[in-house]
């Protein structure tokens, strides 16, 4: 469905994407995995025909360079954060994009109901929360039931709860022969949505793996992000160090690297010492120093 052939994108002297070849068949679901600057978002922009590149990309047999409109007709796209005219009402936005996709006036109830936005038709986009905006973006992407869904770190700006909701929404869509290509830096998203994982490093496609291979390869490098009240952080650091771990402070808490099989270790240590943990998050650590990715901007 999506064929990416020898795609290179240069910015000045550097290469954001370097000679990437990737085939995504109908019904396939491929996650793009990589650090900041690995080229995930750039590759997605290439697929959408937003930027020029060397090489060739076809969606459903249509070259995105020369027949971009036809190609994008097959694509539903959800960006990292929906930015659209703030003054527009939700209903107006849906009608607008529906027209652009050559559809009639859609049944608003069904479209918005499907993403849990019933009753918000008259709201202006600026009045929506981050999660609602993303769900609106998904509803817009799904207008006309496109065979291809392209997602660019769609949960990056959501809180944990919103994220979970959104991923389950996506999981519901991923069956039924739909092709998906998405960028993510969250293991749980990759695990629940992807059939294959394409790992990008410095613009190069290093390998394409199954989610299983991917998870085990990643095992050794899991980082737990613990959200800890400011007053208790110093104590938490001391306790974790005493437990043989290597913690580092960050803005709202502590990052600590653990073995994939022992992710609960820091919790145990802290619970025993009576240090409160408000929230946590699992992050991946690459081979090059710390990677924390609460918000990863391309």
């Amino acid at each position: 469905m999506i064929s990416i052939e020898h795609v290179t994108k240069r910015f000045g002297r550097g290469r954001a994407v370097s000679d990437v070849c990737l085939d995504v068949g109908t019904g396939d679901s491929v996650a793009l995995w990589g650090l900041n600057g690995a080229g995930k978002t750039t590759l997605i922009r290439c697929v959408l025909g937003l930027i020029s590149f060397e090489g060739r990309i076809c969606v459903g047999g249509h070259d995105v360079g020369s027949r971009g409109k036809r190609a994008r007709m097959l694509i539903g796209y959800v960006p990292q954060e929906l930015s659209f005219y703030d003054e527009l009402r939700v209903s107006e936005a849906v009608v607008f994009f529906s027209k652009l996709k050559g559809l009639g006036v859609p049944a608003l109830d069904a479209v918005l109901g499907g993403v849990g936005l019933s009753g918000h038709e008259a709201k202006r986009i600026r009045e929506l929360s981050g999660g609602m905006k993303q769900r609106l973006a998904l509803a817009i992407a799904m207008l006309g039931d496109p065979p291809v869904l392209i997602l660019d770190e769609v949960t990056a700006s959501l809180d944990a709860c919103g994220r979970e909701e959104f991923v389950s929404l996506l999981a519901g869509l991923s069956g039924s022969g739909r092709t998906m290509l998405f960028a993510s830096h969250r293991v749980e998203e990759v695990a629940s949505l992807a059939k294959r994982v394409a790992v990008l490093e410095k613009g190069k496609l290093e390998r394409v793996q199954s989610p299983f291979e991917f998870a085990s390869a990643l095992g050794a490098g899991t980082v737990v992000h613990l959200v800890i009240p400011a007053a208790a952080r110093e104590r938490a650091m001391a306790e974790l160090r005493a437990g043989g771990l290597v913690p580092t402070l960050n803005g709202v808490g502590v990052l600590v690297g653990v073995d994939a099989a022992r992710k609960a270790a820091p919790f145990r240590l802290l619970a025993e010492a009576g240090v409160p943990v408000d929230d946590f998050e699992l992050l991946r650590e690459g081979g090059h120093g710390t990677a924390h990715g609460r918000k990863e901007h391309a």
């Binding site: 652009l100 050559g102 039931d145």
Partner: peptide, 27 residues
């Protein structure tokens, strides 16, 4: 189930590929 709800909101012309609206309509 959610997906089904989303789909039902739109009349899907299955099979034949839809043609994007022409220049004049989009403009």
């Amino acid at each position: 189930m959610i997906a089904a709800a989303i789909h039902s909101g739109i009349q899907v012309t299955s099979g034949a590929e839809r043609v994007p609206p022409g220049l004049a309509r989009n403009v």
